[in-house]
Amino acid sequence: MTEPTSVPAPTVEPTTLRWEPRDVAPIVTLVVLLLFFMAVAPDFRDTGTITRVLKQGAVLGIASVGLTFVLLCGEIDLAVGTIALGTACLCGVLFETPFAAGVGAKAPISFGMTLLVIVLPLVVSLAAGMISGSLTVLSRLPSFIITLSMMNIAQGMAKYITTSRKHEVPEILKLIGNAGIGLTNKISIPYSALLAGTIMILGHIVLKHTRFGRFVYMTGGNREAARLAGVRTSQIVTASLALCAVTAGLAGLVNAGRLGSVSLDQNADLLLNAVACVVLGGTSLFGGEGSMGRTLIGVLTFTMLQVGLADIKWVDEFMRTFLLGVVLLVALVLNGLLAQRRSVQ
């Protein structure tokens, strides 16, 4: 008992490679903001701005890499911020144990021990991500719920192990967070930005040139079709969430290094800022569409917005967050509208 099916009319096919409004919109936003800030804020015109943007954007950039994978396969990870915090706290606590540098980081510490103090927390964050991932797949609950719980668990762990005390972190993290390769006396490339760039390039390669990356896209594009094609979609989802937790952890470590120590008030905005970055670049929240390049543009736009707003004289500190929100809203809605125009064609 079917209605007589009308044969779909042959569609007019688009030319194979064309710049879509959706692809261009984030770049336009970036350029417009750049020009705007250069026009109104004299401080922003300084070449040192490049260093400031890179330094501020690095942490966000690292966390956004993993989050891009998660959003591409149609999931979300709400634990990004607290896993970053938890990882950094664990690192700080380990660093201050008597085996390592001791309380107040007075004792000398061997290279191997430093490595352990940094790698172990990352392994723990990986485990946390794998737990979120497998529970999401196993329970068939939305990752929203599972990672919401993981968010609290990570935060609680951070609080428990640090007893809300500030902890020192290894010198090398401080170095990564603050030093850089000086190009001129004003411009320097921070190590953290180099690290973020490397991870982004790695992420890009994985997404574009490996089977795992392709499966991430297809799982997000149509999970059932991917499953019926033999893709083990549960493993893809689990791996994406695990990857996201590791990059979040790394972002947390770099951030602690940048700030010189770790305390519970760090990374509070990291999750939402990272989501904003990824989406600002044009990656879909529903999976299947986006890329690492877009995430990069999103991160640059967002960071420039933060830096630029701080440079405008007549925007006082108390207005900044408000304006940041407004500009984000406008940019996201414009991007969304442009993307719609394409799907209608």
């Binding site: 089977r211 990356g213 392709r214 297809m218 059932e224 079709a225 019926l228 094609a229 893709v231 299947g288």
Partner: peptide, 27 residues
């Protein structure tokens, strides 16, 4: 809706099931 990823390119749909066999390890 169960067999095609409609929002993806045709070639990605065709290689999806036998990605390694058809393209190898480096896509």
């Amino acid at each position: 809706a169960q067999t095609l990823v409609r929002g993806s390119e045709i070639y990605k749909n065709v290689t999806l099931a036998h990605l390694q066999r058809s393209v190898g390890n480096w896509l």
